[in-house]
Design a protein around this nucleic acid. Structure first.
Lengths: 234, 234
DNA sequence: CGGAATCTTGAGCGGCTTCAAAACCTGTGG
DNA sequence: CCACAGGTTTTGAAGCCGCTCAAGATTCCG
């Protein structure tokens, strides 16, 4: 919590996101190649629905490049953004199971992206041969669970402004680009609000306030974080 | 959603909850005995903290009898009830992983309970020998994730009364006892509200309203569901 | 230039929470 | 048996955060 936020990502080491994927962690290099070789490599155009919530879990995906939104649509038609998927992230974990439950969220690529795709039966075979895969999947699922629990806790105890601050800073760390001393985050007010469980109007008001205080700058579809330390504490 | 709620549980078949545990699903009977044999069997008195949130994941637990609360304490000291653990439920899943993340919630047995306990190294060995264990754990984790996502969705879109209705009915199905035509649920107003993310006062008011409408009856630490169909729709 | 998103700002309101205080239930111990 | 203390429940009153609705300004793209 005390670490300085905002400094991140694309700055230093250009690690291969696929080789560093948590999903393949602890697996020797040659085995990793074998596993990746069993996948189909596909390029997806932007605005492409990859996974439909509730559908049968037929494929496992590993994002190699690009960006995708992982979201759920509630019964009332409201769209809940669960997570931004970045290179190295896997999705469709349900497909690892023998008699898989349906996908529980939808995934849509936000820009042109590349993915590895495994068929259900194929990934089942692999997970039998290389149990480390299932272990990694379990670790990832528990991580999701933890971040979900934290979000839920924040929603219940923190106020809207606090949640927005946390969400924005996390977004900056995960998906921000450091340009000329500011962290650029590609996100609309509505998407940010959605990630923080705050309505769009309240989100706009808070952002405007921060802009007046010189903590951020706004463009269309983009937020520049100038002084993250002005956000955390109000 | 259209199935009649409230009829459940302790009525008919007295299945062994341990043998039916999702955690041991798909494992042949003799292997199951072997796995259970590797565990320590313990009896825990009520009001006993079993897992401390944030602690190192040193043990895996399987609840054989009794009842336990799975909860989290937020930074502001508010206690969030995540789930009631019933016979057949496992907890401490993080201990299945080689280099485990810390426990992310606390568990406290609500009444005298019996549990199987595995040490970290032991359960790691077992999961290597019997990969089905990890698969089951993954399935359980994904299930938790789904129910968490649903709760979150309800919190954002539904109103307090609706959430309370859903929560109460689900509690009745999971942990209710059918006595003389009513489902008895052992829960205080505060605990119910906590499970539905509603304050205690609002919870009391809604319950009182339902009582006046003849849908439920209230005792101290207990709710009797008389007419569940009067709750779902307002 | 037109049109479609996105963003801004204001006004009003409503559902829940918060605070206060009292009634109630239940097990305990004198 | 009664009194007491602790937790639980009830009810009222007040207030505020964030949502909803309306209407305009701005930016971007074809």
């Amino acid at each position: 919590m005390n670490s300085v936020p905002g400094m991140n990502a694309t700055g230093a080491a250009p690690h291969d996101p696929v080789a560093d994927a948590p999903f393949l962690s602890g697996i020797p290099s040659h085995t990793r190649k074998l596993i990746l070789g069993a996948a189909e490599y596909r390029t997806l155009p932007g605005k492409n629905m990859v996974i439909q919530s509730g559908a049968k879990a037929t494929h496992l995906f590993l994002l190699a490049s690009g960006k995708a939104r992982y979201y759920r649509v509630t019964g009332q038609g409201k769209e809940l953004l669960l997570r931004w998927l970045l290179p190295g992230d896997v999705f469709g974990l349900a497909s690892l199971l023998r008699n898989p439950p349906p996908y529980m969220g939808s995934v849509e690529v936000a820009e042109e992206s590349e993915v590895y795709v495994w068929k259900h039966v194929c990934v089942c075979d692999l997970s039998l041969t290389y149990p480390q895969i299932t272990q990694n999947a379990l670790r990832i699922a528990l991580g999701y669970l933890a971040s979900y629990a934290e979000r839920h806790g924040n929603l219940v105890t923190q106020k809207a402004e606090h949640r927005l601050a946390h969400t924005l800073i996390r977004l900056g760390q995960q998906a921000g680009q450091l340009l000329s001393g500011a962290v650029h985050v590609d996100v609309t007010n509505e998407q940010l609000g959605n990630s923080a469980d705050v309505g769009m109007f309240t989100t706009t008001r808070v952002l405007k306030k921060w802009e007046r205080q010189g903590a951020i700058a706004k463009k269309r579809n983009k937020i520049l974080i100038l002084a993250p330390e002005k956000l955390d504490i109000d």
